[in-house]
Simulated scan of single mutants.
Amino acid sequence: MIKNILYKFLTLIVLIRYKNIPKEYFYYYRETFICQLTQLKYIFKDYIFKSKYKVITYNGEFAPELQFALPFAYWHYKNGTLKSTNSSKYTSEMYFFSPDHSEIFEGRSNEANYNFEMPRVLYSQNYNMSKWEPVPLKAQYKNEVYIFDKPILIIANRYNSEWDGPPISFYSIEMLEFIISNLKDKYTIVYNRPRPQNITMDNSDIYDMDEFEWLAEKHPEVVLMEDLFKENKANAKNFNHLQLMVYANSERFISIHGGTATLASYFGGVNLIFSKQGPEHYFGCYRKLYPKFSGASILHAKTEDQIKNYVNKYFIHEEIPTN
């Protein structure tokens, strides 16, 4: 009863305050307010008593975990109020700061994205966030193992179902040819598109685009992340752990929207994100949120022509992005 009244009240607030928002984004505004109101009940525990009470549990998709759950947990750690964290398998290294982290979930779910116990969830009209602290993954995992003769460039690709349909944003073999042929003399290119057995799956299907065979034939100089995992010179505990170590030694990333782009934004330098569509465009996530993870310069390409322009300007000629 009370919950329904609150939802109706917040719906009215959004209708009055934000009149012309597209219908499909309306509920994100309302959910931001729900998250903010939920945090009011913790004022005394968070700012006055400050005992180690907070248990944070999350098993939603990878991107919002990196965007909101992980920085929320780190804020509580820095605040002295974090008791423990719970998440999906292969996440202990992400929560390296947690006093007690448990991997209690085998998979991820879309429903779990809507965790109103966090100050923000999914997309938000307001990214001036409280109780949010960027996690120093780069400083934690920088190492002397994954060092090559040339600077590392990570190509973090994906070829997944999107919004219950076929793949939309991905680097095709033709685009990979352009990127690799233009950058392989300047960088040690590490190609990363995780196989299902190496990551915790959510509701997206992973398809095969046969690029691994193509890479082996046309560009054998490209280093595969999965081959680094097979060698495992740094004794990584899992594939996510390896990614953290290799990414920590890089300053250049070319990624795809979602968890792929979010992870790459945690390691500074320049991150070129290919995203044709999505709520991130409307809410300005690549401009407002993604630079906050590490101070990385974020380049958002909506088309393949923009990708080529950014590669030429910021990767070949290494101009410094203004953001």
Rank of each mutant, 00 (worst) to 15 (best):
I21R: 01
F9N: 15
I34D: 05
R30V: 01
F33H: 10
T32D: 11
L10H: 02
I13K: 15
I5L: 15
F33V: 09
F9L: 15
Q39W: 08
Y27D: 08
R17H: 12
K23P: 03
Y28F: 06
K19L: 07
E24H: 01
E24A: 03
Y29N: 00
E24S: 02
T38D: 13
I21N: 03
P22I: 04
Q36D: 13
I21V: 10
Q36C: 08
L12G: 14
N20Q: 07
T32C: 08
R30H: 02
L6E: 12
K23Q: 07
Y27G: 05
F9W: 14
L37G: 05
Y27K: 08
Y28W: 05
Y18Q: 01
V14M: 01
Y18G: 04
K19A: 02
E31I: 05
Y27N: 08
I5V: 15
T11E: 05
Y18T: 07
Y25H: 01
I34E: 08
L10Y: 03
Y29A: 01
L37N: 09
K8Y: 10
K8I: 10
K19G: 03
T38S: 14
Y25D: 00
Q39H: 08
L15A: 15
K23I: 06
F9D: 10
Y29K: 01
L6P: 07
Y18I: 02
I5C: 14
T11K: 07
K19H: 09
L6Q: 11
E31C: 10
P22H: 03
I5N: 12
R17G: 08
K8M: 11
F33R: 09
Q36W: 12
I13Y: 10
N20A: 05
R30I: 06
L15N: 13
F26T: 00
V14I: 09
C35G: 03
L6M: 15
Y28P: 00
E31A: 08
I34Q: 07
L37C: 08
Q36E: 13
K8A: 12
Q36K: 14
T38M: 14
K23A: 06
L15W: 09
I5A: 13
P22G: 04
Y7G: 11
L6S: 14
I34Y: 04
R17C: 09
R17K: 15
L6F: 12
K8N: 15
Q36H: 14
Q39M: 12
Y27Q: 09
R17N: 14
C35N: 04
L15R: 13
I21E: 05
L37T: 06
L6W: 06
T32N: 11
L12F: 15
Y18F: 06
Y29F: 04
I16D: 06
L15Y: 11
F33N: 09
I16W: 07
I13P: 09
F26M: 01
I13H: 10
L12W: 10
I5S: 13
